[in-house]
Simulated scan of single mutants.
Amino acid sequence: MNSTSIAIVGFGKIARDQHVPALHDNAAFTLDAVASRNASLEGVAHFRDIQTLLDERPDIQAISLCAPPQVRYSQARAAIAAGKHVMLEKPPGATLSEVEDLRAQAEHAGVTLFATWHSRYAAGVAQAREWLNERRVRSVNVQWKEDVRRWHPGQEWIWEAGGLGVFDPGINALSIITAILPEPFFLTQGELAVPANRQGPIAATLAFRDAHDADIRAEFDWRQTGPQTWDIHIETDAGPLSLTQGGSRLTIGDEVMMEGGDAEYPGLYARFAELIANGESDVDVAPLRHVADAFLLGQRVSVDAFHE
């Protein structure tokens, strides 16, 4: 089977650290180009922007969009109009409305659109979903805390409107719990801590309920130094389940059921290849919808200014 010629648009840290190695190990794709204003990849054709790429390399079949969400809509629409399959880094867009429009455009053009949530491909997530599907959830406690200076050095876009602030990592936790919890859940209250000199929150505390009144709480914080925390603890009628280390370690009761390595981005590209082969799209906006709800319902609290 011939491989799909793919280009990465937006060549920042996540593209270099995760997308390139995942593509290198996936025979379904051949990385043939990069489009980026400020970065290039040795041995791969480079273009300054996506339109130049589309004009000069009509042979490219798929585009992996890794640019910030504020500019992703116009890039995705151009790629779809050119007949390319499109994979969207998370979050899939700056607004729900633009992602829905991209879904419609992709369907009309007959191409694949894949809105990705890499944390759903962590090692323990699938087994956690299967186990929880037959249990009644009583409570959920999410602790997603990390050091923004370590993971996003100098990235001003994350603090601007549409950049999501602490929800940039927090949406990873939301992507997991929307995938594994057997019932839909809804925000009841929230508090967003916003630095005096920024638009996006640096921390957030959220409370949700599901149809059975389970207590679901999430704490996101970008001010944690030292060891980083990406943990989800769930109490059920059959005992506790924990997904820790970003979802790579699954514990049920006192037994460690799964402890795997980093398979998230390889999983994404395997899924993208499957979607292309089957002529399908996968555009789940549930995690982004919860973030939008937090900005709608959450109370904003001003905190100390943040400086790099």
Rank of each mutant, 00 (worst) to 15 (best):
A115C: 08
A263K: 10
G279K: 12
A45K: 12
Q51Y: 07
E259Y: 13
L296N: 07
S36P: 07
H290T: 00
E98W: 09
R135P: 09
G253R: 09
A203E: 13
H118E: 11
E259Q: 15
F272T: 01
K145F: 05
D17Y: 08
I276T: 06
V301P: 04
W131N: 01
A218N: 05
P169C: 06
P169R: 02
A238T: 01
S281H: 12
Q51T: 08
N141Q: 15
S36Q: 09
Q127P: 02
P240N: 11
E308H: 01
A238M: 10
P169F: 14
E264A: 15
A109L: 09
N278G: 06
D55R: 14
T112I: 12
R149S: 13
E98Y: 07
A115K: 05
E191D: 08
Q18R: 13
D282F: 09
E146W: 06
E219S: 12
D147L: 03
V86A: 12
Q127T: 12
S302M: 03
L250G: 06
A294W: 10
P182A: 02
V44T: 03
N26P: 10
V142S: 06
D237T: 10
S97D: 15
L96S: 12
Q143D: 10
P201E: 04
P287D: 03
A196W: 03
P195K: 00
A15P: 03
A207I: 06
A286V: 03
M1A: 09
H19M: 03
H85I: 08
Q105Y: 04
G12D: 01
E98A: 08
A270H: 05
D59I: 07
A28F: 06
W117N: 10
D32W: 02
P91Y: 07
I276Y: 11
S40Q: 13
L23C: 09
I177H: 05
D49E: 09
D147V: 01
I63N: 08
L113K: 10
C66K: 02
R57G: 12
S139A: 14
A292E: 15
T30H: 12
V166T: 13
W222G: 01
E255T: 15
V291M: 03
G10C: 09
A123M: 05
V44N: 06
Q51V: 08
G162V: 01
P21R: 05
A277P: 00
E264H: 14
S302E: 13
S175Y: 15
I63W: 08
A33P: 09
S119G: 05
